[in-house]
């Protein structure tokens, strides 16, 4: 188990290093931040001083070495634009995104699994057809359009929910969160739902496929032959078997939801890291973009790791044994 953890950790570091390198040089090729950051009306001396202050006067490989040196001391660089450490900037925006992502995943699980199981158990009923039709719409329409439609229906026509922002926040362990106040919760519903639509559709399809496959298995028939109640057969025997693929995919999607909540955050003016990334790319704020990417990779690696753990908890056949793995 320890060997497995160490190997896993080493792999993660490697992926992060490769990612940081690619993004660092990739962004260098996109354009020169100097053109955007320097006030053209300053005199030449002031401009050069500013360039030197940002470290942009050095050749790119020196800049990269400086960057590596910074990482070694736990410093991911200072934002060109905000003049604050990049990591700090991202972390200050992260709770909003995490909250959004968490509620989106919750919706995906609580709505997707039951709906998918219903569609799998009664494939020819009208209700199932509605569910599957809905999931196709959820899949195939663009997310920003779904967001706009949600705003139009709930905020403009019916005026029941606000169209954007985080609303009133309260501090939970020193972190501002929305869901503890009624106003904040109202602000959270639409963006969370919008972010969840695709995942709900995905989970519905996974659960349905799993359910229709598992219900044909001998062990389900055998469970019936033992006189178990339908509730127990569906809620334990079938559910536990379909959870394996659902958990895997949801785990991977959780990373996506956090990293790429950009569209939803933009549509609903949700002040999270997605919005920050878009702004930073626009301004070629390299330290922020690189730090964001590294954080994203780190998150994916961690999530995959926990998914593997959850997987082995659900499926006893692949439990990780010491020395094997």
């Amino acid at each position: 188990m320890l060997a497995y953890l160490i190997r896993r950790f080493g792999q993660s570091l490697l992926v992060m290093a490769v990612m940081a390198t690619i993004v660092f040089f990739g962004l260098y090729m996109v354009g020169n931040p100097v053109d955007l950051l320097i006030n053209p009306e300053d005199d030449l001396a002031a401009q050069e001083a500013a360039i030197r202050r940002l470290g942009l006067d050095q050749p790119i490989y020196i800049q990269f070495l400086q960057f590596l040196k910074g990482i070694a001391t736990g410093n991911l660089g200072v934002s060109f634009v905000h003049n604050t450490p990049a990591l700090e900037l991202i972390l200050s925006r992260l709770p909003a995104t995490l909250e959004l992502a968490f509620f989106a995943m919750l919706l995906a699980i609580l709505l997707g699994i039951p709906l998918g199981m219903i569609a799998g158990l009664y494939p020819s009923s009208p209700g199932s057809r509605v569910i599957m039709g809905g999931s196709i719409i959820g899949f195939s329409t663009p997310n920003f359009w779904q967001g706009l439609m949600l705003i139009m229906l709930f905020a403009v026509f019916w005026r029941v929910l606000p169209s954007g922002g985080r609303g009133q926040t309260t501090d939970l362990f020193g972190i501002p969160v929305s869901f503890l106040t009624l106003d904040g919760l109202k602000h959270l519903i639409l963006p969370a739902l919008n972010l969840a639509i695709f995942k709900i559709a995905l989970v519905i399809r996974l659960s349905r496929a799993g359910t229709s496959e598992v219900s044909l298995q001998d062990y389900v028939k055998y469970a019936r032959a033992r006189g178990l109640s339908e509730k127990r057969i569906v809620g334990v025997h079938i559910l536990k078997n379909i959870l394996i693929p659902v958990v895997t995919v949801l785990g991977l999607e959780l990373g996506n939801v956090i990293a790429f909540a950009v569209v939803t955050e933009t549509v609903f003016a949700w002040p999270g890291i997605g919005k920050l990334l878009i702004d930073s790319i626009g301004l070629l704020d390299r330290p922020v973009v690189v730090a964001y990417m590294m954080l994203t990779v780190f998150m994916f690696v961690m999530i995959n790791f926990f998914v593997d753990m959850a997987y082995s908890m659900l499926d006893p056949r692949i439990r990780i044994k010491a020395g094997k793995s």
Binding site: Q217, D218, Y219, K221, Y222, A223, A225, R226, V236, H237, K240, N241, I244, L314, D315, P316, R317
Partner: peptide
Amino acid sequence: IAMIFQDPMMTLNPVLR
């Protein structure tokens, strides 16, 4: 009435003890 199935590899639910 109890039933014993043909393939013992397939009759017991693999994820339950």
